[in-house]
Amino acid sequence: MQRAFLPFSLLLALVLGLSSQAQATTLARPATVKDTIVVRLPNKAVITLMVRDAAQLRQLKKYQLDSLTSRLATYITQAEAAAKNATTNQVTMEFYPDKDQPGKNMPEQIRITTHKTAAGTSSSNKVEVMMDKASKNTGVSFKIGGKTDAERKARELNRDSVRLKNFEKPHTKSHLIFDLGLNALVNQKTYLARDGQPESLDLRSGGSRYVNIGLNWDPRLGGKHSPVSLTIGPEFAFNNYMLSGNNKWVNNNGRTDVVRETDGRQYQKSKLASSSVNLPVMLRLQLRDSHYRPTFLVGAGGFVGYRIKSWTKLKYTSEGTTYKDKEDGSYNMENFLYGLQGTIGYGDLEFFAKYNMNSLFKAGAGPDTQVLSFGIRLIGVN
């Protein structure tokens, strides 16, 4: 293909004639562009010639390109002046050089769109000029700056290739998870307090927090493109059960009760907390779009666990001094844990729910209730 015909003066004039604020859109890009020449200048400007064949490229000799370049600079100056006085962020102006200078093979129409930019910011300049006399089947497009469609498509294909490579290997992935949520008591049955009166157990929702940290493995089930995997791995959970009102947890005579404070103290915090180690086993479905980006995901399964430690904590102020009383003990809580859990999400957003099928306390040694934990997964994998 002949490439030497384009004079350096044209390249220099095109670069110097363009304002940093101007952008012109093509009138009608040829339906089938087969050949592309990209010229990169030292100041990082880019000139792209897009033609269908060599014959169309040779026709450029008949256009007055130097004159066109000077005219472009004039048009852009006019467009900038109009944009400064405009009330909108975008101004489009159309020029007809072929009518101004008939018989000189000038473009029939040039459309220049000028965008206002915020102070202190830079814009990517792009000028596309469709030089076409009357036929819509022939033409040459000039583009100054910006990215060509071919370059953008190549960049996207490269990103897709990287995502696909990461998706296909390794067959088993490991990842850290971090869950943050709340605890609620469910299926609670009325129990008799120490004075023989029925009493219900009320938690302070905002203070009854659930935190879970774990290391999960996700072996893929099926082929290398299968969206289904198995999730297993150790997790460490911390549950807080903070009482509402001026109540406290009391462990006495092999029984755990909620007792109202009567000596005048006003509790700022009154909670029972526990830590446990759990082993989840879940099936996970992770769908992806055509570019291998993660979309909808859902996981469901169960878990087993063991309570490691439990304690109570009271916070109150007396005579201007703040006290924090902490007492370790089993508080008759169940040691072995089991239940159901699941996750659901889209993209990077994922939520979890965990239902303890075992009672919070041993039978007859405390309130008869179960625990539901729910919240958001802050760290996970897609």
Rank of each mutant, 00 (worst) to 15 (best):
A81H: 08
H115F: 10
K99H: 07
K136E: 08
G103E: 10
A86C: 07
M93R: 04
S135H: 01
E94S: 12
M106K: 02
G103R: 15
P107E: 14
E108H: 03
T87H: 09
S141C: 11
D98W: 09
A118W: 00
T113Q: 05
V91N: 03
G139V: 10
T113F: 00
A81D: 02
D100H: 01
T88Y: 06
T87W: 00
A119I: 07
D100Q: 04
K126F: 15
V127G: 02
Q78R: 03
N85W: 07
T113M: 04
T77W: 04
A119W: 00
G103T: 14
H115A: 12
T92W: 01
Q78Y: 05
K133M: 02
V91W: 05
P102F: 15
T87Q: 13
V129Q: 00
T77C: 04
A82N: 05
H115V: 13
T121E: 05
D98P: 07
P107A: 14
T121L: 09
N85C: 05
T87N: 12
S124G: 05
D100R: 00
S123F: 10
I76G: 01
E80N: 13
G139L: 08
M106H: 04
N125C: 08
M93P: 00
Q90D: 05
K133N: 05
I76N: 03
V140D: 03
E128A: 05
E80A: 07
T117G: 11
T88I: 08
N85P: 06
M131G: 02
M131F: 15
T121S: 11
T77G: 10
A82D: 07
M106W: 14
Y96W: 04
T113N: 02
A83H: 04
T138M: 04
T77K: 12
E80H: 03
T121V: 12
P107C: 12
N105S: 06
M130C: 02
S141R: 14
D100E: 12
V140M: 11
N85L: 10
Q101V: 13
T121A: 07
T88N: 12
S141K: 10
K104H: 15
E94A: 13
K133S: 06
R111N: 09
S135W: 00
Q101N: 11
V91A: 06
K84H: 06
H115W: 01
K84Q: 09
A134E: 06
M131Q: 04
S124I: 11
M131C: 04
S123E: 07
T121I: 03
N89M: 11
S122C: 12
T114R: 05
I112H: 00
E94T: 14
T87S: 14
N105Q: 09
K116R: 14
Q78K: 04
E108F: 00
Y96A: 08
T121Y: 01
H115Q: 14
P102W: 15
K136Q: 03
T121F: 00
